[in-house]
């Protein structure tokens, strides 16, 4: 039987290969659970309305915006955040490409840009500059680092191909 509807309850979240049990209010978004409960603050809170992409994470390997999802809805699924990309001190190829291409200024949108790029490359949707622009259209950069972001994603996609 499914559980009775409740305003608060315990959930177990799988994030970056680890399990976390935490007590949450039903209203808690996945984004707020990551930042405020699990203290994984790499995932950024921008608009909280799905418009900016700063909170992009992978859910079962696919890109989602963690602000438009209740934490309770992520139970039983595998979440990957920006903290889960590097292996020790070795950056993920997309992270390394962002550094190499100077693909950010203030850096606030960067975790979301990188998670979105990782997803797009995995999905095989980063084959040209036009496709990269379209695929990252849900990730806004108000500093306007777009030209270098496209270059970084193209470079990383080419290396991983």
């Amino acid at each position: 039987m499914p559980p009775e509807p409740a305003q608060s309850f315990a959930v177990t979240l799988r994030v970056n290969g680890q399990s976390f049990e935490t007590e949450i209010d039903a209203r808690t978004t996945l984004l707020d659970a990551l930042r405020d409960r699990l203290h994984l603050t790499g995932t950024k809170k921008g608009c909280a309305l799905g418009q900016c992409g700063a909170c992009t994470v992978l859910l079962d390997g696919k890109r989602v915006v963690s602000c438009l999802m209740l934490a309770a809805m992520a139970e039983g699924r595998e979440v990957t955040t920006i903290e889960g990309l590097a292996r020790g001190d070795e950056l993920h190829p997309v992270q390394a490409a962002f550094v190499e291409h100077d693909a950010f200024q203030c850096g606030y949108c960067t975790p979301g840009q990188i998670m979105s790029a990782v997803g797009a490359i995995r999905e095989g949707r980063a084959g040209s500059d036009d496709e990269i622009r379209e695929q990252l259209s849900g990730n806004l950069c108000r500093c306007g680092a777009y030209a270098n972001i496209v270059a970084a994603v193209r470079d990383a996609a080419t290396r991983e191909a």
């Binding site: 499914p2 009775e4 409740a6 305003q7 309850f9 039903a26 209203r27």
Partner: peptide
């Protein structure tokens, strides 16, 4: 956000009953 209760439902009949 106003407070609300939350629970998953298992099938269409269960969903319709909650609705």
């Amino acid at each position: 956000m106003q407070p609300f209760t939350y629970a998953p439902v298992a099938d269409a009949a269960g969903a319709a009953a909650r609705a």
